[in-house]
Design a protein around this nucleic acid. Structure first.
Lengths: 258, 258
DNA sequence: TCACAATACCTTATGTCGTAAGGAGTTTCA
DNA sequence: TGAAACTCCTTACGACATAAGGTATTGTGA
């Protein structure tokens, strides 16, 4: 289930996200020197989430990975929700920056590929709601890049908003499909084709009138998909490149400099 | 966080999803008459989730709403995960069926609007991963409808797959934005404009060099957005209709009968 | 008719979680 | 040289999913 953005003290959250020193001195006057930093905690938490998913992400697990207790984290981070918000932003720091020179269309595709790769490196990102009211610096940088890339297309601002939002949806949705394909393949261990034919047999047994009730679905399923052990991931990838191409085709109509 | 599809006994899950009687007799030979049904449990669970979100959905809450205990549910449903899978499918049963007569484009838009409305009626749907290996009957019906609607466009099957997957991503992504806008508006109680200007003031304080670091983002934010108390939801809706239009524009290039 | 098998639902128990409360030790300022 | 301010810890609490097993209820076969 999606973790929604934390709703604690917005000032504190913002300051943490942007690592601002304005909301308090950098080092408090008295007391022992902190053994941890927010960044160290984020790295540990991201490592835990990469290994065990969001379900495996507990305050205890993060604390232990740092040689500390769960409670020690609360000195640096108000709640688990805010920790996840910070992780979400931090994970976007690792985004590659492939910038081909081939016009805005190629650059947009490169941006989408980079973002998708980031999601697939940290699949738990897909379990965190992205529809957040405020962005952290790294998410903001991702947004800034696609806006810069789309600049030469000279689109009206409403179109820019629409296309950027659509691009995020496409990248995220396809990454979800790919991640699900991988997780299914990994957890069952059986190649996709075998798994698929088993599923079909079961369906024929349980829903014998499927073909009559869902003729269009049946027809589409009969069309040749890509084959191979990773056919599910391949299909998801093809759907992504195809969908992106269609969207950008449509966009070229609106662009003054196609 | 996203709840992934349950991975229990796939036969049992499939049989439950499709309410198949093939995996066991409809009424067991002996024993007390069941006081509940899977459908009653699903309706109660959906009501709980509609009221309190997925976070508020506990086996106890569902059981108590039915005048029973949490454990009694386990007679009908193997785990909470499978319950959520069943809820996910069931919620799609309430999808409206607006079918204008204006060609595949208008019908596709109507389908997208209906699906988005369904997501917004049950926002917790957006917290459940949709990238599931098997569909229930109601999800399948939603898919079937868009395939039927797209039929007259006479697209190659790879294109159909791409556009359908993109459509789902777009609808889901926009619904997420709208739901987030509503939840923010509902929880703070302040009109969007006020909230937004407060946020801007905070940002100027915490990240004074924002405009230099993110010139394109700054420029876009300065473009006039729709105004009003619900400006955030309006923006998300505009982005959706705009993105959908762009996608369908692109699709018309591929269609033999535009 | 009656014992028993099969079942529904319950109480209880276990282990996990986030995090509140408050204590002990450390560092720096007055 | 206190004492304030801080970090980190132990302990505790209530919520959660769900395992284990008990009890009551129903229909079947003798």
């Amino acid at each position: 289930m999606v973790v929604y953005a934390g709703q604690g003290d917005p000032q504190r959250t913002l300051a943490l996200l942007w690592r601002a020193s304005s909301a308090g001195p950098a080092r408090p006057a008295r007391g022992p020197k902190p053994a941890l930093t927010v960044d160290a905690i984020l790295n540990a938490a991201i490592a835990v989430a990469d290994e065990s998913g969001l379900d495996g992400l507990s305050m205890r697990a993060v604390g232990e990975r740092l040689g500390h207790t769960a409670m020690s984290l609360y000195t640096y981070v108000p709640t688990k929700r805010e920790l996840i918000d910070l992780m979400y932003d931090q994970a976007h720091a690792g985004l590659a920056r492939t910038e081909p020179s081939g016009g805005w269309r190629a650059e947009t595709e490169a941006w989408a590929d980079d973002l998708q790769a980031c999601y697939l490196r940290h699949p738990w990102l897909l379990q965190v709601s992205h529809a957040r009211p405020v962005l952290g610096p790294h998410e903001q940088a991702v947004l800034e890049r696609v806006l810069r890339v789309l600049g030469p297309a000279e689109l009206p601002s409403a179109t820019v908003r629409a296309v950027v939002s659509s691009l995020f949806s496409l990248v995220r949705g396809s990454a979800q499909s790919i991640a699900e394909a991988r997780s299914a393949a990994g957890s069952t261990g059986t190649p996709d084709q075998e798994w698929w034919s088993l599923r079909s047999r079961l369906m024929r047994e349980i829903v014998p009138d499927f073909a009559e009730r869902f003729p269009h679905s049946t027809l589409l399923a009969a069309q040749p998909p890509p084959d191979g052990a990773d056919q599910w991931e391949r299909m998801a990838r093809d759907a992504f490149t195809g969908g992106l191409a269609i969207l950008l085709d449509g966009l070229e109509r609106h662009s003054t400099s196609g």
